[in-house]
Design a protein around this nucleic acid. Structure first.
Lengths: 216, 216
DNA sequence: TTGCTTGCGTTAGAAGTTATAACACCTAGC
DNA sequence: GCTAGGTGTTATAACTTCTAACGCAAGCAA
């Protein structure tokens, strides 16, 4: 938004083209995965020659990073909107699955296998923190099912670099992390197709895990 | 083994070269990920010209498939050996983490983001079933911590395509699946580097999850 | 209105990649 | 010892990313 309503016509045009490039990029990623994304193919689809795209993105990595940025923003906005509408932890779990299934490769771009050594830019980490912050808020609610007592809570209480200034107690910290890892566990295996042919419904497995952490 | 002690010297040589190719492939994967694996680069490392490798692997996909096959075999053998030595479910959890950390990209090759549409060959599915079978065995033991009752158990009892002829009850089925998804959730996020900078120790989170499923 | 600057798209090209084809050689086995 | 099959070679096609050099045209300013 900030980009497309820029002052000069050139900036507006530029923003518009960048958006179109990203649109085609998402299409390619959805069908063949991020590793198969080709700047050249995108350029051809848009009716221009390959090197022209480099006016808009310095290289392939920059485009992918921009896609990651957008994906994090989308997830963060979705979560904050639901939280603002009064969602509890269980609602957030369902929201996450809906968001992931809407575009599996988008989820996997954020949480799937990264290239070894890839360093996410600073601002995406901050957007990811927004997501975690919403989860932490919801983990502070009353009436959530008990989690097994474990030495983990003491450890987390002593190592809260990731919580920022969030005033969450040790049980909430454990619940938030567990929320993340358990739901990601089901979701990523489902999206990777590891459950296909096994016969059961991944949604029910997911729901059971969500209920164990977030209750009814 | 079966391959390298083959009859003719040519077959023996062939098997030897294939092994060396795979060795270099694993090195490349470990440092740059599977998507960066280059047959050409491997050939140069081995002191031969690019196309020579195609005598040994029909194409890149076939090499990667072979690596996946080997990885599954390694995991299955590791698990069956531990089980034969009397390992319980908690031991298997620790075994899994050790195996994964020994070569993160090997774990991610099996359980990370796949190329959309990639179909694993039949025999790898069977090797993966061996792993699940060992887990199911361990899930049938007495004295494991209770899992929350949920409609999932009824659903799993009705949809057991994946259990083969394994005589496991519904609680064991749920435990086995949960073992897989929860441990994978922690492990994959850790290997993907999602915990770096958060301050806590992933091993403790993993241990807590392992204990919740497998007990002490 | 007349420039001038800046940005955009082009082609050309270097350095990679996967993969096929055609050819030479060597070796294993008859 | 000879022959056939397996192995490695080079050449080539069709891709990829990305840089360089060029021309054009649109926006901005005097």
């Amino acid at each position: 938004m900030n980009e497309s309503e820029a002052a000069t016509p050139r900036q507006r045009y530029r923003a518009q083209v960048r958006e179109e490039v990203k649109k085609h990029a998402w299409q390619q990623i959805a069908t063949a995965g991020a590793s198969a994304l080709s700047l050249n193919a995108i350029a051809k689809q848009m009716g221009m020659s390959g090197p022209a795209l480099y006016r808009y993105f310095a290289n392939r990595d920059e485009l992918i990073t921009e896609l990651i940025r957008d994906a994090y923003r989308s997830l963060s906005e979705t979560f904050r909107a639901r939280a603002a509408a009064g969602a509890d932890l269980g609602d957030l779990a369902r929201t996450l699955r809906t968001w992931a299934l809407a575009d599996p490769q988008r989820y996997l771009l954020l949480y799937g296998t990264p290239v070894p050594g890839y360093q996410a830019p600073e601002d995406t980490a901050r957007t990811a923190d927004e997501v975690m912050s919403v989860i932490l808020d919801a983990c502070g609610a009353d009436g959530l099912p008990a989690l097994p007592q474990s030495p983990l809570q003491a450890h987390l209480a002593d190592h809260q670099a990731w919580t920022g200034q969030h005033p969450a107690g040790a049980p909430a910290l454990q619940r938030a992390l567990t929320f993340w890892t358990r739901l990601h566990g089901v979701l990523s295996l489902e999206l990777a197709g590891q459950f296909t042919g096994m016969g059961f419904d991944p949604a029910q497995l997911y729901a059971a895990e969500a209920q164990a952490i977030a209750g009814r």
